[in-house]
Nucleic acid binder design. Sequence first.
DNA 1: ATGCGGCCTCCCCCAAGGTGAGAGTCAAGC
DNA 2: GCTTGACTCTCACCTTGGGGGAGGCCGCAT
Lengths: 293, 293
Amino acid sequence: MEEISIGEFARRSRLSVKALRLYDELGVLNPARVDSNSGYRYYDDTQLNDARLVFMLRQLEFPLTTIKELLACDPVDAAEQIAVHWRSVESAHDARRELADYLVNKLRGKRSVMYEVATRDIPERSLLCLKRNVDELGAWTIGKEFIAILRERPLPKMEGREGAMFSIYWGEVSADSDGPVEWCKPVPEADAQALASHYPELALRTEPAHREAYVALANDALPTGPGGDRGVQRQLVSEALRVWAENGGIHPESLTLKPDDLGVRITYLANGPVTEASPPYCDFAVPFAPANS
Amino acid sequence: MEEISIGEFARRSRLSVKALRLYDELGVLNPARVDSNSGYRYYDDTQLNDARLVFMLRQLEFPLTTIKELLACDPVDAAEQIAVHWRSVESAHDARRELADYLVNKLRGKRSVMYEVATRDIPERSLLCLKRNVDELGAWTIGKEFIAILRERPLPKMEGREGAMFSIYWGEVSADSDGPVEWCKPVPEADAQALASHYPELALRTEPAHREAYVALANDALPTGPGGDRGVQRQLVSEALRVWAENGGIHPESLTLKPDDLGVRITYLANGPVTEASPPYCDFAVPFAPANS
DNA sequence: ATGCGGCCTCCCCCAAGGTGAGAGTCAAGC
DNA sequence: GCTTGACTCTCACCTTGGGGGAGGCCGCAT
């Protein structure tokens, strides 16, 4: 049980002296003893394990506050948290890889279409809707609630995309702003009123006929969770829509694509139960041109 | 050719107003016009492309200074630089993935041996050496020089690992310190003197017999270039060696493993030409115990 | 006692912005 | 023309995870 000076400890742990002093200050890794009159920090060789762990976690870019918690909790729990964190790093990395590929191709002049844009006519239809402001966790928490409500009571089947539920982003959905998100389910116009009476939580409204441009996403390209990786993907999709509009697919002015993707719709079409592991078919759509051309 | 206010431009480019002001200040993206008495910045819609490019490059975590250069140069060159950068990001990510896996397994209590440690006896031998301080680019620049020197003139073949060249890290090889690195090639003791006279650039020295612990790296686990990703890998290797020493493979005290990996040797055994794409067999060794046990 | 190296605190610096204060500007409505 | 509200300006401070250095102790060897 020898006392180790900070410099020696730094060399053995691969941490810098500066970092060790910071960790002491933040309570991440306190020296075993601090000489009260010289202020010298002395470490203990049992602390080397923690120090090496801190070093590795820093290489994985964990914030120091998280590292502090990880050191305090059970190693197995820590392993779990690290695994979870790492998965989110992986998916963020995948999204960025996609962006990098797109960018390199674009700058090389091959304008590879990462996402194919098409258009479709949407007739006037009745919708059962749930509109809410987003609380941090993103649109999916509301989506889950919406699905739960719909599942409670019966609803006439509408086949294919016609009856697929979708969400509309009415405002900035970034981390700061809580722009409202609306989840909608089309219902047959005939008995809309009757159905709506079974769903007091949901509002019934009629959406006018319009035309929309959309991008279909392959299932495996879907964001794997309610994480921040969705941003990069949405960016590529919105890029695809913008390029398409500019290239004369439609007169850019008539595209009601708001400055950012305000009003973008995301359609979900589930074949089975919707879980994070098996996401549904999904497309991004932007309405334009109030009437069909 | 409309004038766009900073707020509008921010929305269209997905950049924040604050970021735009910063980019103006740093010369990354200057407004088309700055009103001289109000100080208002006005952008031009031809700048939207650059702005969106900046946004994407920021998502890929390019530093602003690099982005500035990328904007200035030809798009095709920029694509090339981005591709190069991305490859290094990928390899750094791979290294970190390896570390994350190791860490999770370790904390879960399965101490998975990522790297198997073995020992070997090295007899006294004669070496032709090139010792240098490292200039930023790492040990490989010296290594290439060393290989070039050796290739110039004939050398008796020594089969297998016996004759494999290796490098010794005599000091910290991190970004700051330029700890010397020595590249060595064993030569038959018999005609060492004669051979050395053909290589005035190289020093001849005799290494005493010793025993060393080593970790063999699979070829595909090799760092893919002189990048910073090597650090993570070396860390795992040194972790493996440390754990092995602690577990009584050898008495830890007699391991001359310096506080960090001072004195670590990396052996390269090329079967073909050594390129970045086809790295040679490689192992990390730490000498201990001056005599063989 | 006199180095020399190691350690201390304190302060400023970096990227890439975020946040807020206090003040000036723009455009529309009345 | 005036007001109002939205927008913008600059300036200064905060963030994370340290790096660099100044000026001043500490400890150990000679």
